[in-house]
């Protein structure tokens, strides 16, 4: 049965910085969740999700061997680590921010 779930139920993530660019690696908790991430967590959706924080483009890369996606959020850190006025100047919590996104997935009963 298709269920709408926040990504935190089916994935984990880690984020870091390079200048004013934040990278978020999103990893499926089980290989069978990966196709839903590929299909629904598009660069466009991530750009929309982070519209308040990310002023530039969002790029997406696939790592099927790790069941992971990598996102680059350009102009997302208020100028970058040492320039930024934000508490999270390096986007360390962006991983969790992405995990707030909801997607539709066919979950077996025990994991829903």
């Amino acid at each position: 049965m298709m269920t709408r779930v926040p990504l935190r139920r089916i994935a984990h993530a880690r984020s870091g910085d390079k200048g004013d660019c934040s990278n978020i690696g999103l990893i499926a908790l089980k290989p069978e969740f990966y196709p839903a991430l590929v299909a629904q967590v598009t660069a466009e959706r991530v750009k929309e999700h982070f519209r308040e924080l990310c002023k530039g483009e969002v790029e997406r890369f696939e790592l099927p061997n790790l069941h992971a996606l990598n996102f680059l959020l350009h102009e997302a850190l208020d100028g970058g680590g040492t320039v930024s006025l934000r508490t999270d100047a390096q986007g360390k919590t962006f991983s969790a921010a992405l995990l707030r996104m909801e997607i539709e997935i066919d979950l077996p009963a025990e994991s829903s």
């Binding site: 984990h12 880690r14 870091g16 390079k18 690696g25 990893i27 890369f61 790592l63 992971a68």
Partner: peptide, 10 residues
Amino acid sequence: KEQLVYEIGD
């Protein structure tokens, strides 16, 4: 895996 995707680009 979390460390592998940490601060990478392409």
